[in-house]
Design a protein around this nucleic acid. Sequence first.
DNA 1: GATCTTAATGCAAACGTTTGCAATGATGTT
DNA 2: AACATCATTGCAAACGTTTGCATTAAGATC
Lengths: 333, 333
Amino acid sequence: MGTTQLKLSDLARLAGVSTSTASRALNDNPLIKKETRERIQALAKEHHFSVNAAASRLRMQKTKVIAVIINLEAETKQSVDDPFLLKVVSDINRAVNRKGYELLLSNSYMAGEDWHGYFISGRRADGVIVVGQGKEQARIERAARAGTPIVVWGDPKTSANYPIVGSDNFIGGLNATEHLIARGASKLLFLGDPGHAELGERYRGFCHAVEKAKVEAQMIKIDITSEAAYASINALLRAQGLTFDGIFACSDMVALGALKALKERYVSVPNDVRIVGFDDIAMAQISFPALSTIKQDTNAAAQLLVEKLLSQLSGETCASQEVPSLLVIRQSS
Amino acid sequence: MGTTQLKLSDLARLAGVSTSTASRALNDNPLIKKETRERIQALAKEHHFSVNAAASRLRMQKTKVIAVIINLEAETKQSVDDPFLLKVVSDINRAVNRKGYELLLSNSYMAGEDWHGYFISGRRADGVIVVGQGKEQARIERAARAGTPIVVWGDPKTSANYPIVGSDNFIGGLNATEHLIARGASKLLFLGDPGHAELGERYRGFCHAVEKAKVEAQMIKIDITSEAAYASINALLRAQGLTFDGIFACSDMVALGALKALKERYVSVPNDVRIVGFDDIAMAQISFPALSTIKQDTNAAAQLLVEKLLSQLSGETCASQEVPSLLVIRQSS
DNA sequence: GATCTTAATGCAAACGTTTGCAATGATGTT
DNA sequence: AACATCATTGCAAACGTTTGCATTAAGATC
């Protein structure tokens, strides 16, 4: 309490060595005799000493911090509370920690337009992970061009001057749709917004399967929320009756919204309509009927994101990469 | 790219002033003539200059960073992916930003045992927000005693040497239970773990209502996950049949797990069994039937947490506080 | 015994800000 | 005309590390 903050030079004096020796000892530098190192480390623990990160960062010119910025456009209502996005952040957090880095949680509000200036020049972080490619990639591209070490969670097929990691959305959409067809659906419905890069790929997969099987199909463009899905299915049923027998929803939240609308109107799932979602959020297996879905391997993706970012930090350049997705069959299909 | 990092002294030279003038100008210090200030600020923008945060923090002795640490005990399986916890973090993020601070997302893994040493002495953050009181408060208490500015999301009734913000869990439990009874339930079931501080209060509210109304009640102690709830309801139905007609679940995830088990066995909700959850996560209104629940005002709580933390930073001492919760009636009851 | 190598440690500069104090010039007062 | 006041700016120290280089002591080699 009353005591002033212990600094490295104090610790050194307590140990009877110079500041530089103390510094090297704490960093386990083999220049220092082993027993000296251990003695100083023990002393540090005993006195609850910790290195002043601000000073260290200033001197080292690196922060050991990675910024994660959640990149949501104002236009869409997909909220920051989307369980899937938050799961991605959570997995990134773990992956970042495993590599000895810390995670600065940020957003457009703080970082403004000039991400390179804010994070890199501002020495707030050594690199940036962007979650959510969004529809507008100007800021990401600008940051990358300015030399920001940066990786993006999004659609890996998009060509860009930065590496993108994400699921194989096309295959995912294809598998989901073929599964619906295999289960007997012949009048398909895609629910989502193909204007969004990742969802566009899923839609391409959907269309591919539809054409191959020569079945009917329609697409309803909606906001990526359960509310929008609920409302649109309700409207569709009211206006035209049951014009479909299989739904591929662009996300689980959307699928669950649709599911609710169907159940309220006594449409049986999966007998009358089969549904497959995308993401495999926790709720998918707890809904009733449990939701079939395309599971995104966020854990593997998070690890890849971090690895690619770190390799950029050591000067290498790396490419976009898809991570396999997996069809999880449950009761809804 | 090839150009070296612009520093304050470079900017000053470009503007034809001293470094100190440039510094003051960027901080809008009225000591500097207004037009000089504006000229330098414009120049900074033009050259994409940003202050080196590491240097600034070193000199200022403060970081403008708040650490949020998610405090989950190893024993319970409540995962970091719990949508409610993540919503709290997300709301805290917004509240922190509004005050001009950044958010460092951390956990026991990085911070270790000595939070004061790691965050405060280590100059990584100016204060700490702990999400999740947990069952074991030794680390929090130790950090507080060491002088860490700290606030906790948890049960405000717990007496502690740090301020706790959270919902009025007792009232919440009381209201939920009285509502169940008012809807005709007379054989109640509490699903959760009263050993956990917040849940204990909810259980107290439950018991209070039960005693007042003199109805039957039982409690099943389970892990706070939908899987555990699903499994326990299943087991109970199999072993004893339908021995209850109202469930107060300690969280929405738990409620939804229970709901699924009931629906699978064709128990009608809300006709045979009424259910009320706690939290009001996004899924509550999209489940079928939509889940009645006690809504926690995470937004207000987040703001309170941040305000209390900042007032600690300016030397004030502050008390725990409850935020009102709200019974949201939907179809499940 | 003188020189060379090696292991271990210390000295001092640098990282880029912010800020108390001093300095300057201009204006107002006696 | 001498002096006090005020607005504006600059000087230089300090924040607490890390690290290239110099130094020391001890053992090895000739």
